[in-house]
Design a protein around this nucleic acid. Structure first.
Length: 420
RNA sequence: GCGGCCAUGGUGUAGAGGCAACACAGCAGAUUGUGGAUCUGUUAUCAGGGGUUCAAUUCCCCUUGGCCGCCCCA
């Protein structure tokens, strides 16, 4: 094969689009129920927007961005995530302020240059929300609840919500200091990766799955124990509100996210049906990002859902919806009949019935076979005999009965309405 | 960026150092213009390049791609 889709990219074929459409419809519905409005931003932005917001030392920025120079010498990057572009758009169009709440949702392709594997692609799709303008813990819970409701609507069970707090600008540095101190005299017992992490991003050591490290991590200080008063109070309120709303969750004090802009609450929704990449949804608070990108300080919470992963979970346990059937299949024999059929098809469609016909000049038998295969409910047959009589055969495919009716669009539509 | 496994018709799979097999799908046909069943026929330079050999699709190497894992993330 000469041309194939590029590494890490995938065609979503007609057999799969119904699942996608269902998910997309659910997203629209649920986000709408919470009064979030859709926003669409370009797929590329100036590179600096991402390096500034996500953090220069993160994996995303240091090695996963699709960055290129355009003909005008600008450094552009295909968006690896959507939070920064949404903030940029909000600032550019004055959509947010500290005094008002702005609730937005988005859906679309993201790009990250990584080795593809289960649940990971170079072009993948996310649907997400961002709520600006309040530090209210209840807003955190609203956002989490929205994700939970969405998954429920889609019919997913046995998902787990993990939450944690990574602290703010004030208490996080303190915690990192504490953590580094705890690990320094134990470095030799840590795995090689963790030794690197300890220097690059000490928080990530908490996330290590290696057994040897686990035993050390167990006794390590947890972020929740080092929160400042505001962060602690905020987190307690989030948890209390989750309880009140009866949203099931697990406090996971090893949950650390890889994007620098997160502050306070972080959460993930994980599924055990996904293999190594088990998070379907990730999010949290980012109270400093708007200011860092040049706006007034406006706190925010949001999440992103990985649509491929969602499809990955659903694919197995939800029956794929039946493909749409066509109402009428027109069978014409001969050029003259074909012309008339073409015209009739157009009239039938105008009345709101779907119609299709043959473009191969096949025999009656083959055309009938085709009509059967595509699931046509009715077939119209126009051959020599009918043509001479000014009639057309109207055949009900499931009954196997047929009758001759007058060959004009109005009569056909009338009969269709009657048989609906 | 690193590691493991893999690469045969449209699809899913066999196969063996010397004629590439089977199933499904597709198309055509089984007496004139009637679908779903059955039967018949038909569909492959065995991913690309190099090497070993009288002979490679089979063995070896490289490349590319796929799947999975690490890292990280959705």
């Amino acid at each position: 094969m000469k041309y194939t889709s590029q590494r890490g990219t995938k065609d979503i074929l007609p057999s799969e689009t119904p699942v996608w459409q269902r998910i997309e419809a659910s997203c629209r519905r649920i986000f709408g129920l919470y009064n979030y409005a859709e926003i669409r931003t370009p797929v590329f932005e100036q590179t600096e927007l991402f390096s500034r917001s996500i953090g220069t030392d993160t994996d995303i920025v240091s090695k996963e961005m699709y960055t290129f120079e355009d003909r005008g010498g600008r450094s552009l990057t295909l968006r690896p995530e959507e939070t920064a572009p949404v903030v940029r758009a909000c600032l550019q169009h004055n959509l947010i302020s500290p005094e008002n709440i702005t609730k937005l949702w988005y859906m679309g392709p993201m790009f990250r240059y990584e080795r593809p594997q289960a649940g990971r692609y170079r072009q993948f799709h996310q649907a997400g929300v961002e709520a600006f303008g309040s530090t209210d813990p209840m807003l955190d819970v609203e956002v989490i609840d929205m994700a939970v409701q969405l998954f429920r609507e889609i019919g997913l069970t046995d998902l787990e919500v993990d939450i944690n707090s990574v602290g703010c600008k004030k208490c996080r540095p303190e915690f990192i200091k504490k953590l580094t101190k705890y690990f320094t005299d134990k470095t030799s017992d840590l795995c090689d990766d963790c030794k690197k992490r300890l220097v690059k991003n000490p928080l990530r050591v908490l996330d290590c799955k290696i057994q040897g490290c686990q035993s050390i991590i167990k006794a390590a200080p947890a972020p929740v124990d080092s929160l400042c008063r505001e962060c602690e109070e905020h987190f307690e309120n989030v948890v209390a509100c989750m309880d009140e709303q009866k949203i099931k969750y697990k406090i996971n004090n090893r949950l650390v996210r890889g994007l620098d802009y997160y502050t306070g609450t972080t959460f993930e929704v994980v599924s055990d049906k996904l293999g190594a990449q088990n998070a379907v949804c990730g999010g949290g608070r980012y109270d400093d990002l708007v200011k860092e990108l040049g706006g007034k300080p406006v706190p925010a919470v949001g999440f992103a859902i990985g649509l491929e992963r969602l499809v990955g979970i659903i694919g197995s346990d939800v029956q794929s919806p039946k493909s749409d059937v066509v109402d009428v299949y027109l069978i014409a024999i001969g050029e003259k009949a074909k012309n008339i059929a073409f015209d009739l098809a157009s009239g039938i469609r105008k009345a709101g019935f779907s119609a299709d016909m043959d473009f191969h000049g096949k025999k009656l038998k083959s055309q009938l076979k085709l009509a059967d295969r595509i699931g046509a409910r009715f077939v119209l047959i126009l051959g020599e005999d009918e043509l001479n009589k000014g009639k057309i055969v109207f055949r009900d495919m499931s009954e196997g009965k047929q009758e001759e009716i007058k060959c004009d669009a109005a009569t056909i539509v009338e009969v269709l309405e009657k048989n609906k």
